[in-house]
């Protein structure tokens, strides 16, 4: 895959997250704890990891990243970016 720019990655990830959480608020609230807000639960987290693998070819194990390091939109983007 050709190297993706930060903006492309961000846009794709926002689409993904909006679909999984069913809430377009994720586009604006980039630093809120998605688990605390009830937008993500264990099930949605798995869906996110599977989608990230399909979309970006980045494989993250369920316990690969501690929850507090991957619980906001910006942190999720960051975790994928450092693995690309």
């Amino acid at each position: 895959m050709a190297k993706m720019t930060h903006e492309e990655l961000e846009e794709k990830m926002l689409d993904l997250l909006e679909e999984i959480t069913g809430d377009e608020a994720v586009r604006e609230q980039r630093d809120v704890d998605l688990f605390e807000e009830g937008l993500l639960d264990s099930m949605a987290a798995v869906e996110l990891l599977v989608d990230i693998e399909e979309e970006f070819g980045v494989s993250i194990a369920p316990t690969g990243v501690p929850r507090e390091e991957m619980n906001t939109v910006n942190l999720i983007i960051h975790q994928v970016e450092i693995r690309l």
Binding site: V46, E47, V50, P62
Partner: peptide, 13 residues
């Protein structure tokens, strides 16, 4: 949750 539920969910997805 981490080693059974999430792995089962990932496998079935």
């Amino acid at each position: 949750r981490d080693f059974v539920f999430m792995r089962f969910a990932r496998f079935s997805m």
